[in-house]
Design a protein around this nucleic acid. Structure first.
Length: 625
DNA sequence: TGTTAGGGCGCG
DNA sequence: AAAGCGCGCCCTAACA
């Protein structure tokens, strides 16, 4: 059991730089669905530039057979160079070696899908262009929204991803399967019948995307965003292929210690049932199901506890012997249902948890994740996230990222000055709040989240006097949102347009027979959108910085530790975890720090603001911070 | 029997 | 102490 799990082997790329492209050499390789009609010629190295002396392809080895997809080579200006060729699994090694040794950029509709195919055969690539992800960005961004390309696209379908996800979930349930990532389903090779645009279509859209991006500063920022988004997609796919080290034995021990032995299906663990019984006694409700908020609320009322809901923060205001029991129950129940034995069986395989990210899954540009609650790993079980023998976890966190980002994007020199210390909030406190850190933090968070009531609201004026530009930026974003306008991140990602409820409420308030209630409703909806857009610009720009940080870390790893045994294994908004052989720890720590500084320079073209990262070198996740 | 909405709570 | 941004997932309850 103590045997370290085996890793998939990932070969280093053969990164030979090729200078200039005379038009004779390819710059891009487009990979997409194979089309049967007309059937493209088979992939043949001998037909590619500079490969006339290559050996003839083997057509009889393992994996040879049905074409998986098709490739098309483009020159630096995006012009097709050669006829479309189909490739099989057996061709992958030659194809990747050819392209990577010439530093080609891979162009595909979906990194998630096509890079998974390459990774399944242990190939990595250096650079890519994810046409699908970039489509969403260009469609939403005011920088390109009026381009012919964006205008010709069908409207963005909100929550498209969610409906697909739900459908897949339902399918897998019907099939009696958990929607979990077995190696089988994860690395299932795309079949020739797989739907998807043809290489010519993808190449055409790739050209259209470049044409849509203007050659000015906003255009260059957007192009940085496009490549950063794609690097993120590469990393997400690599994390998915690598997995996060997870010790099931430690996890089980932890569960047994806190919950007792694993219960029979449909039963509560002994410890949990015990607490439920005590709660029933204390509330004099012998048949109470503590999992039912309705029953629980009634029982609490009968016991004279006057609460509107059963949520923790409200219960914390009251004092009753049962409430401590209830809190215990909730904590343990959460552990059991969210990260108990069932979760362990569904999501941990071969000593790894396999995060399944959706890059750009959040409108602000953050990643979301589906399956296993990959972005909600609770503190209580982080001790099970444990490095293999001979390796360490390097856990890095961008400290107080969002206010620093706000300082940089607004060019607020006072806030930038506050960022030079380790503790930004103390810096703010010293400059504008008489040294009171908690007040400073409250005010800053209030400004970024749109809190107008209570103490945070009262402190806004004080914040604004010292940090005028920063506050003005978020206030303007809020006004724009309230008015139904689009706001953008620093690199140009646009927020979604007002939703139907916003439009309807405003129409009602503007009609001739509008009531005071209609007006109040419209104001409320507008303020809600204002809080969203206020936060969008900061959260979204922080997400852009984080993408660039990740990308720079990846770049550093590939260049300085080209055996690729140090891997990024987890990413959580402003935090990254790497699994690193002991001998490489120092170098990785240096890479992580340097990457943060590079990211700031890359995004903001300025060193006004410091973006320090805290790095912990640990055996298990719970030891970090 | 299956789907959906909301409460509640985990993460940043 | 309390509520202001973004998510995903579990449970119950109401609905078809």
């Amino acid at each position: 059991m103590g045997r370290p799990p085996t890793h998939p082997v990932v070969r280093p790329c053969h990164n030979v730089r090729v200078h200039a492209s005379s038009g004779e050499r390819p710059s891009y390789v487009v990979v997409a669905a194979w089309s049967a009609e007309p059937a493209p010629a088979p992939f043949d190295l001998r037909r590619l530039p500079e490969k006339e002396d290559a050996p003839a392809p083997r057509r009889d080895g393992p994996g040879a057979g049905e074409p998986l997809g098709a490739v098309l080579f483009l020159d630096a200006r995006g012009r097709s160079m050669l006829p479309v060729q189909s490739f099989t699994f057996a061709d992958l090694a030659d194809l990747v070696t050819y392209c990577e040794s010439r530093a080609l950029r891979w162009v595909w509709e979906s990194t998630r899908r096509w890079y998974a195919l390459l990774l399944s055969d242990s190939h990595t690539v250096d650079r890519a262009w994810d046409v699908g992800l970039i489509r969403t960005i260009l469609q939403r961004s005011p920088v390109t929204g009026r381009s012919a390309y964006a205008q010709a696209l069908p409207p963005v379908v909100e929550h498209d991803d969610a409906s697909v996800r739900d459908a897949e979930h339902a399918d897998s349930r019907r099939a009696g399967l958990d929607a979990r990532p077995g190696q089988d389903s994860l690395f299932a090779a795309p079949t020739p019948a797989a739907t998807g645009p043809s290489v010519e279509t993808v190449a055409e859209e790739f050209r259209a995307q470049h044409a849509a991006i203007p050659a000015d500063v906003p255009g260059r920022k957007l192009e940085l965003l496009a490549t950063a988004e794609t690097v993120g997609a590469l990393i997400a796919a690599e994390i998915r292929a690598t997995g996060m080290p997870w010790r099931a034995d430690l996890h089980r021990a932890l569960l047994e210690e806190r919950l007792g032995p694993r219960p029979a299906p449909g039963h509560r663990p002994a410890r949990l049932e015990e607490i439920a019984n005590r709660l029933r006694e204390q509330l004099d409700a012998p048949r109470l199901n503590p999992d039912s908020p309705q029953e629980l609320l009634r029982a609490l009322h009968r016991a004279g506890i006057d609460v509107r809901s059963t949520s923790q923060w409200e219960l914390a205001e009251h004092d009753h012997p049962s409430l401590e029991t209830l809190e215990q129950y909730k904590k343990l129940s959460r552990l059991f249902t969210a990260n108990g034995w069932a979760w362990l069986e569904a999501w941990i395989h071969d000593g790894r948890f396999w995060p399944d990210y959706t890059v750009g899954g959040v409108v602000t540009g953050r990643w979301s994740a589906r399956g296993g609650g990959a972005l909600q790993i609770p503190a209580t079980i982080r001790s099970a996230v444990h490095a293999d023998y001979g390796s360490k976890l390097v856990v890095a966190d961008a400290a107080q990222l969002e206010p620093r980002i706000l300082a940089a994007m607004s060019g607020d020199e006072a806030l930038a000055a506050a960022s030079t210390g380790q503790d930004l909030y103390q810096g703010i406190a010293n400059m504008g709040f008489g040294g009171d850190r908690s007040q400073a933090k409250l005010a800053m968070l209030g400004a970024m989240y749109g809190q107008t009531t209570g103490e945070a609201g009262r402190l806004m004026g004080q914040l604004s006097r010292t940090f005028g530009l920063a506050v003005a930026l978020v206030e303007q974003a809020a006004r724009d949102g309230e008015a139904g306008r689009i706001v953008t991140t620093f690199l140009g990602r646009g927020c979604p347009p007002p939703d139907a409820a916003f439009v309807a409420a405003r129409r009602a308030a503007n009609s001739v027979d509008a009531t005071a209630a209609d007006q109040a409703r419209a104001d409320s909806v507008a303020r809600t959108r204002g809080r969203f857009t206020r936060n969008f610009v900061v959260q979204g720009t922080a997400a852009e910085w984080a993408l660039c940080w990740l990308g720079q870390i990846r770049h550093g790893l590939r260049n300085r530790l080209p055996d690729l045994s140090s891997r990024i294994v987890f990413f959580l908004h402003d935090e990254v975890m790497l699994h690193v052989p002991n001998a490489q720890v120092d170098e990785v720590v240096a890479i992580v720090h340097e990457a943060a500084a590079r990211a700031t320079a890359l995004v903001f073209r300025s060193d006004l603001v410091e973006t320090p990262v805290t790095v912990a070198v640990v055996d298990s996740y719970d030891q970090a911070k």
